[in-house]
Design a protein around this nucleic acid. Structure first.
Lengths: 205, 205
DNA sequence: TTCTGTATAAACTGATCAGTTCACTTCGAG
DNA sequence: CTCGAAGTGAACTGATCAGTTTATACAGAA
C-alpha cells in the first residue's frame, strides 16, 4: 500500500464492470439494458456488480461520465493553432462533424437526451464535459484570432455556439431521426465548408 | 353515412384515447408510460383502447404523428412574406426559438430522439412532418427573396438548414441537457438577432 | 322485443427485471 | 495452514406491465 494504485475505488473487477456497462448501455439504451446482460458482458456475477455500484442508475451515470471525459480528451487536441484562422476553423469543424456523425456520438447523445428528464444530473454531466468544454476551447481560439486581427467578434460565446450549431446543419437531424446513419465525405465537406463560409462572412475581418 | 364524418377510422372514443396517450406519453416517455395509465387518463377501458390500437407502439406512433402535424400547421403560418427579408427572417427565427424552448417541443424531441433507435419509423415520421416541412417552407421564402434581389444563395437547402441550426445556438443544448428549462426574452432575442445577423452577412446582397 | 355493436371492469397470463440472499469457491497475506 | 476478503452462480422476491379474456351493460336499429 505504500506505493502503486491509489486510483481505484475498489477491487480488480471495477473496470471490467464499467466496460460491460459501456457495451450494453450503448447498444441497448438505459431501459433496454438489463443488469443480467451487463453482468454477463462484463464477465462478472451480478452480486459482484452490485458490490461496486449501488444500483443501475448509478452504474449508468458512472459509465456515461467516464466515456464523456475520454471523448473530450481525444477531441480538439490535434489542432494547429498557429495556422491561419480559416484553416483552424476548418479543422475544428471537421472534428465536430466527425464526432456528430460517429456511432458513439450518436448513441451517447441519444441516451443522454432521452434519459435526462428522469435524471437531470446525467444531462448536466454530459453538457459540462461535452458541449461546454468544446465551447470554452473555441472561445480560446477566437481570442487568439482576435488578437491577431483575423477575427472581429463582439459576443464570443455566442459565436462559438453558432459555429458549433452550423456544423450540425443537415447532418444532425438526419442522423438523430434515423434518416441516415452514415455520410459521404462530400456530404460532410459541404457542411464543413458551409459552416466556415458563413462564419467568416460575419466574423472575419 | 351519405354525409358528415368520413374522417374517423372508428368509433367515438378514438380521439379520447389519443388525448390520453398524448398526456401520459408526453409526461412519462414511452417506457415510463403504462397502458393502464393511458386508459385511465383517457377515461376508457383498456379493452377499448386495444380495440382501436393493436399495441402500445402503434398508439405512440399515431399520437406523435398527430401532434407533429398539428404543430407544423400552427407554426410558420403567420409570417408576412411581403415584408423585407430581414423582418421575415426575424419572425421565422422567433417562431423557431419559441418552439425549441417550449415544453412541448422539448418533450416530443426528447422522446423521438430517445426512442428512434428502437423504432426508426418514429424518427422518420417526426423528421418528415417537422424539420423537413420547416426546411421546405424556408426554401420557398428564400426563392422569393432571391427573385426580389434581397438574397443571394447558391445552396438553398443548406442555407435553410444553417438558419435552422443558428436558431438553436446556446438555447438548445442547455434545454436538452437540463441546464435550463426556461429562458428570458433577452436570451431569446440574443439568439434570434445573432442568427439573422450571421445569415445576412453571408447571404444578404 | 330482440339483436348487434360498442363499451366496461376486473381478473388473469406470461414475461421481464431490479435487487437480494446464500452456500460455496478462490487466492493471497500473515 | 488458515483466515478473510473478493468473487461466483443460482435461486428467489416482489413488483411492473403488455396484452387477453370473460362476463356484463347499454345503446339504437330492425
Amino acid at each position: 500500500m505504500p506505493d502503486g494504485t491509489i486510483e481505484q475505488k475498489k477491487g480488480r473487477k471495477f473496470d471490467q464492470v464499467l466496460a460491460g456497462a459501456r457495451q450494453v448501455f450503448l447498444s441497448d439504451g438505459f431501459d433496454g439494458a438489463s443488469v443480467d446482460d451487463i453482468a454477463r458482458a462484463a464477465g462478472v456475477s451480478k452480486a459482484t456488480l452490485y458490490s461496486y455500484f449501488p444500483d443501475k442508475r448509478f452504474l449508468f451515470m458512472q459509465m456515461a461520465k467516464t466515456e464523456c471525459q475520454r471523448q473530450a480528451e481525444t477531441t480538439l487536441e490535434a489542432v494547429d493553432i498557429a495556422a491561419p484562422i480559416e484553416t483552424v476553423l476548418r479543422d475544428i469543424a471537421s472534428q465536430m462533424v466527425n464526432f456528430i456523425t460517429s456511432e458513439f456520438g450518436q448513441r451517447i447523445f441519444r441516451i443522454c437526451v432521452g434519459e435526462s428528464d428522469r435524471f437531470p444530473e446525467l444531462g448536466r454531466e454530459f453538457y459540462e464535459s461535452g458541449p461546454k468544454m468544446v465551447r470554452d476551447r473555441m472561445v480560446d481560439v477566437f481570442h487568439l484570432a482576435i488578437e491577431r486581427g483575423e477575427l472581429q467578434i463582439d459576443d464570443v460565446t455566442l459565436a462559438a455556439d453558432q459555429f458549433h450549431e452550423l456544423c450540425k446543419a443537415d447532418l444532425f437531424p438526419r442522423m438523430v431521426f434515423s434518416m441516415a446513419s452514415e455520410f459521404t465525405e462530400a456530404e460532410k465537406m459541404r457542411v464543413v465548408d458551409g459552416a466556415v463560409d458563413v462564419f467568416m462572412a460575419r466574423y472575419g475581418v
